[in-house]
């Protein structure tokens, strides 16, 4: 086993355990924390894959901003004291997990087998050593994907306005 395999197993295990913890903790704060752990492990996996930029952005955007927002809302609503009562029944839960396992099996089957014929599999052997720098990403982003890039700014603007409208109406009703 080389270093990459050991690290893959480590990060993979941590991210899986974290993900399972997200859906099993009763309290949303602990779920949020587990999700942060998962995101970190994924950032580690991104570094293993040579995607340093994506790893850093993963930590900045997900761990640094999105999860802080989650924590903010959980604390704001003080959900700890009124944890959700009517959880779904045991039978339904079992059914959901069985369906989930089937879904996972399907995903794994696709991941292992169906890729054999595609360009991905054929390119795999040769190009494994290429690392993609921030420069490459920037170049693609501002040339080939310029239009999508501009559109994302519109999405963010829409989100911004949407949030303001949502919360503004709330405030006026209270007055």
């Amino acid at each position: 086993m080389n270093a990459e395999q050991i690290l893959f197993i480590l990060f993979g295990a941590v991210s899986l355990i974290g993900a399972i913890a997200v859906i099993s903790f009763r309290h949303p704060i602990y779920s949020a924390l587990s999700l942060i752990v998962t995101f970190f492990a994924q950032a580690g996996l991104f570094v293993l894959l040579g995607a340093h930029f994506v790893a850093a952005v993963q930590v900045i955007v997900y761990a640094g901003a999105i999860m802080v927002l989650f924590l903010f809302v959980i604390m704001l609503l003080n959900l700890g004291t009124l944890s959700v009562q009517g959880a779904i029944g045991r039978k339904l839960k079992g059914l959901a997990i069985i369906l989930g396992i089937l879904f996972a099996a399907e995903g794994i089957y696709i991941a292992v087998n169906a890729l054999n014929d595609t360009a991905v599999a054929s390119a795999e052997s040769g190009a494994a050593a290429v690392t993609i720098t921030t420069y490459d990403i920037g170049e693609l982003l501002f040339s080939k994907y310029l239009l999508p890039f501009e559109v994302t700014s519109l999405i963010l603007l829409a989100a911004l306005i949407g949030v303001i409208v949502l919360v503004k109406r709330e405030g006026q009703e209270e007055n």
Partner: peptide
């Protein structure tokens, strides 16, 4: 990596199915 990705996705799906808390 793809298998790991599939597993994580599945856990997310199961979470949506079994949890009733909107935030989770």
């Amino acid at each position: 990596y793809l298998v790991l990705s599939a597993l994580l996705f599945t856990i997310g799906v199961i979470g949506v199915l079994i949890r009733r808390n909107a935030i989770i």
